[in-house]
Amino acid sequence: MVTDSPAVGGRATRRAFVIRALAGVGAALAAAVGVPIAGLAAAPAFRSSLRWPLQAGSVPPTPRATGWTSLGPVDGFQVGVPKLLPVTVPVEVQGATEWTPIAVYVLRPDADTVAILDIHCTHMGCPVGWSQGAKRFLCPCHGGAFTADGAREAGPPPRPMDRYRALVANQEIWMGPLIEPA
């Protein structure tokens, strides 16, 4: 009777070889199936704009608008008083362009300049509120405070409020893409 016991000289090496070969084939099969699966799952991380910063700040949860959107006549915005404005902007979501509601603060520090601020605190992304009395943006989460033009003033936020590109054309304010935080 032929036994396949490891003790039997030549057979032992043959047995070990077959088992190793099987393990190798198994590993190759697992990789062949696993790499594309994991790759697809990780696809959102393959953006060319991905950064590797030592100090990553929070990232605004706002969908990134494409193109320019009119926010209405510049006269509708009082100088010196930030206005919370809901807008609907075109956003690319999973390959399709969708009109998505977001909200921004529109500022006119003086008659000639406009700035458009993202409403999210740069600490952890909570929605900051404008306090007309304090003339400041205050965050309800960890007490961050920003000045009337969005500069970082107090508390944990690491950078000023995030901005969108803004321009005035034909007496209308236009909102462009988010200026990605550095």
Binding site: L50, P53, Q55, A56, V59, P61, M124
Partner: peptide, 12 residues
């Protein structure tokens, strides 16, 4: 955002 603020791999 808490997870995303990790050094180097935060954005990823």
């Amino acid at each position: 955002n808490v997870a995303g603020s990790a050094p180097f791999v935060g954005d990823l």
